[in-house]
């Protein structure tokens, strides 16, 4: 993939503290144009905070953030380029989808009302019924369609599929992939379940303990990691050459997830490619921050 793509999102040391809690700490990440980025992390990892900072709904307490070339701000021209769907999928419950189309038409310079009607009709979602009477999945579809009607360049979705059943999830993501295929759109969507997003995403931001653990194109990230399986023995040599993400030991055998720092030369280790889920779980298992030098191993019998 062309890494020379202009970055749609660029943050440096981005932090957000609420009175006593640090919700996001020193997040430095880049999302190039055209990616569908999975923002993965356990609950409370700072996903919502990051998305709200990118949308300009919250202000950072530290660091820099540039979205589409500038700081997120209360400016119609900036807001016209950003689509954001909050986790609770806020819509005016007593207004119908058709009313919301009217709202959007009045409040946005670009507005593709026809696309919303067409999508919602295709999904058999009634346009004239108040959205309070729709199911959670239908509301999510309405919210996504409304956000897409703005023709944004960046779409930020906070746990969009959390409330949906598996079928609705698939429909929703298909709907999203179809929109991105149109071109020019960059998407960041958060979830605490990787399986939801694996199918459509080509980029990954992994948050844990309010820090960015991983950020990059999924292919690249996967290529940078390997699983080593070998007899149980001292891992100091491995840790010198590579970054040890996670170590699992049984009585005889050790399984190491490493970020590759060079070729694995020791023939005692059998190297294998790592799957995305394995990788993500490996990082999520360790909340110790980016320095993994003093890890305690999982499953070690003492």
């Amino acid at each position: 993939m062309a890494s020379s793509n202009p970055a749609v999102i660029q943050t440096c040391g981005l932090s957000k503290r609420y009175r006593k809690v640090t919700a996001l700490s020193e997040a430095t990440l880049t999302v190039p144009q055209g990616r569908i980025s999975a923002l993965i992390g356990p609950n409370g990892a700072g996903k919502t905070t990051l998305l709200r900072l990118l949308a300009g709904l919250a202000r950072p307490t530290g660091g820099e953030v540039a979205v589409l070339g500038g700081a997120p701000r209360q400016d119609p021209a900036f807001l016209a380029e950003i689509g954001f769907v909050a986790q609770e999928i806020p819509l005016y419950r007593r207004l119908s989808a058709e009313d919301h189309i009217g709202v959007g038409a009045h409040l946005n310079p670009r507005w593709d009302a026809a696309s919303v009607r067409q999508r919602l009709k295709g999904l058999n979602i009634p346009l004239d019924q108040t959205v309070g009477t729709l199911s959670g999945g239908q509301r999510a579809q309405v919210a996504l369609s409304l956000t897409l009607a703005k023709r944004p360049r960046l779409l930020l979705l906070d746990e969009p599929v959390a409330a949906l059943d598996p079928l609705a999830r698939r429909q929703f993501l298909a709907h999203l992939a179809e929109a991105v295929a149109g071109g020019g759109l960059t998407v960041v969507l958060s979830s605490h379940l990787l399986a939801d997003l694996e199918r459509v995403c080509d980029h990954l931001i992994l948050l844990a303990a309010s820090r960015v653990q991983l950020c990059g194109d999924i292919d690249t990230v996967l290529a940078e990691h390997q699983v080593l399986v070998g007899p149980r023995k001292d891992t100091t040599a491995i840790e010198k050459a590579h970054t040890l993400v996670q170590a699992t030991h049984t009585a005889r055998q050790s399984t190491l997830l490493i970020r590759v720092g060079g070729p694995v030369v020791d023939p005692a280790w059998e190297a294998a490619d790592v799957g995305l889920e394995e990788l993500v779980l490996g990082y999520m298992g360790q909340h110790a921050g980016p320095a993994f030098s003093h890890l305690t191993s999982v499953g070690e019998d003492q």
Partner: peptide, 16 residues
């Protein structure tokens, strides 16, 4: 309370 301020504030209109 209903979060609709977030909906309105993410349209192309300033909060003011």
């Amino acid at each position: 309370e209903t979060g609709t301020s977030q909906f309105a504030w993410m349209q192309s209109i300033t909060r003011s």
